[in-house]
Design a binder for these strands. Structure first.
Length: 482
RNA sequence: GGCCACGUGGCGGAGUGGUGACGCAGCGGACUGCAAAUCCGCGUACCCCGGUUCAAUUCCGGGCGUGGCCUCCA
């Protein structure tokens, strides 16, 4: 199936061909680990996981290398570490903070059903590589040393600004911040900077005497080169990173290596809003992945990770997404339907549905894929033979992993009912129904309903016997249809 | 101010130069003692104004609205 991807660099959808035949390399900007990952951070994690799965399907699992980094050196980290662990030495505080935060990140996104990347490099393990990049850039005249800093000279690169489609003149005209006196050009950016006491510090490159630390963008240039090479296939991240982060990555990597491109395809997921507003701490609508999964803070419910994932994939990745409780409710209903049918059905080695593969191959059209999925679900209800393909398709999207309805209903334990008592009451009701004592049977049904138990009567197709099944309704605003 | 993205029915959300994807909700019906579930059926949607065209929601221009980015900063 030919794969088409929208390339921010050209502002077009383009047919995708790996640079090295049958070998796909992908780099996605991961988190800066200083705090809980928020729901906006979850979007690229989920979106590029779908792409990873699709690429593995097309090229084979061993032919795709997916690198997603962890940035563990950053001013925000330094500040947060000092704030949270004032009694520890700076270095120990930073290590503690970054390790804890990275572990939390892994826990949170594992619930979203994402595969692990092939390599998850950390910035602090690549300081030497960053130094080499600095050296190379200075040697080639693309960077200069000033007051202990290494700065990239943007005027040395003819097409700087191509990714974000802005010219140097425009950017300089729009600059709102005072320019540091040691910079040659207003848009020059830092590759390396001196460390003050208490800040993380490494031996500086480019002949600088004092210790220092890397600037923001250099870590991704270093890590992508080490793990994927000087030029690779796909680079992904949020649209907010296009400028300056990715623009500067391109500048560093291309100028250091003398290559015409860094990655051939640049993909950016759209921004996320919450209930129609920008997500920000000051608006009080800031929501972390963990809060979604483990608290009732959003939409008065806990949400299973698969529900979060399905809700996220309901919007095309390049579109802005408005994160609402209603989306989660709809996703949960859909997953409940899936779980009712598929729970306990072992996964099969079938191929996923070709139409869904085609939809995903068209620049990851997940909403269309999900719509096709609804049709597959109908077929699978009627025809158990269709379930293998359905399951394989669910697997490709990563939206269902064999969970039961109860699994998909976090917080279920809190509402747990006495199963033996429920079964006794159901038996009594069936008995009353046989006697046509409908008053009594309705009374029992109401009693169960008050306990949060919903009954469903069905006839056994073979015997004609009435079989009653039951489910516990979820708490909160949205009553499931079960 | 500059650059960019988006604006589709009650809601979500694809897509297309000419027969109203799909889901949720809603309505009608079948089935059921009732209820739930299930099944069948039901929708004069494309922000506004111009232009191109036999034909525009789809292309072009302008407007309005929403959002993003605009240097080492949170």
């Amino acid at each position: 199936m030919p794969l088409t991807l929208y390339n921010t660099l050209t502002r077009r959808k383009e047919a995708f061909t790996p640079l090295v035949p049958n070998r796909v390399s992908m780099y996605v900007c991961g988190p800066t680990v200083y705090d809980f990952a928020h729901i906006g951070n979850a979007r690229p994690v989920i979106v590029f996981d779908v792409l990873y799965r699709l690429l593995r399907l097309e090229y084979g699992a061993d032919h795709v290398k997916y690198v997603r980094n962890i940035t563990d050196v950053d001013d925000k980290i330094n500040a947060r570490a000092a704030e949270r662990y004032p009694d520890l030495a700076p270095e120990a505080a930073i290590r503690k903070l970054t390790e804890e935060t990275a572990a939390q990140f892994h826990t949170d996104i594992a619930a979203l059903g994402v595969l692990e990347p092939d390599v998850e490099p950390r910035a602090t393990d690549h300081i030497a590589e960053m130094g080499k990049l600095c050296d190379a850039l200075v040697q080639k005249g693309h960077a200069y040393v000033a007051e202990g800093h290494v700065l990239f000279d943007v005027s040395s690169m003819a097409d700087y600004g191509k990714l974000s489609n802005r010219s140097l003149e425009e950017m300089e005209a729009g600059a709102r911040v005072e320019v540091a006196p040691y910079k040659k050009g207003a848009m020059d950016f830092v590759l390396w900077k001196p460390s003050k006491p208490g800040e993380p510090a490494w031996p500086s490159p480019c002949g600088i005497e004092g210790p220092g630390r890397p600037g923001w963008h250099i870590e991704c240039s270093a890590m992508s080169e080490k793990h994927l090479g000087k030029v690779f296939d796909i680079h992904g991240g949020g649209i907010d990173l296009a400028f300056p982060h990715h623009e500067n990555e391109i500048a560093q990597s291309r100028c250091a290596h003398g290559t015409p491109m860094m990655a051939q395809v640049w993909m950016h997921n759209g921004f996320l809003q919450v209930e129609g507003e920008k997500m920000s701490k000051s608006l009080g609508n800031f929501i972390t992945i963990n809060e979604l999964l483990a608290t009732n803070k959003f939409g008065s419910n806990q949400w299973h990770g698969r529900v979060v994932r399905l809700a996220m994939l309901g919007t095309h990745y390049r579109q802005p997404i408005d994160w609402t409780a209603d989306k989660l409710l709809q996703a949960r209903n859909t997953l409940w339907d899936i779980a009712r049918m598929m729970h306990g059905n072992p996964a099969d080695k079938s191929a996923p549905n070709p139409e869904v593969v085609a939809a995903l191959s068209d620049d990851l059209n997940t909403p269309k894929a999900i719509s096709i999925l609804h049709g597959l679900m109908k077929s699978a209800v009627r025809n158990p033979d269709a379930r293998d393909e359905f399951m394989a398709t669910l697997e490709l999207l990563g939206i269902y992993g064999g969970e039961s309805v109860e699994d998909l209903n976090p917080g279920f334990e809190a509402r747990k009912v006495d199963g033996a008592r429920v079964r006794t009451l159901i038996a009594a009701r069936l008995d009353a129904r046989k006697r046509k004592d409908f008053k009594e049977s309705d009374r029992i049904r109401d009693e169960l309903s008050a306990m949060g138990v919903q009954l469903k009567d069905a006839k056994d197709p073979k015997t004609g016997e009435i079989v009653t099944t039951w489910e516990v309704r979820a708490a909160g605003t949205a009553e499931p249809r079960s």
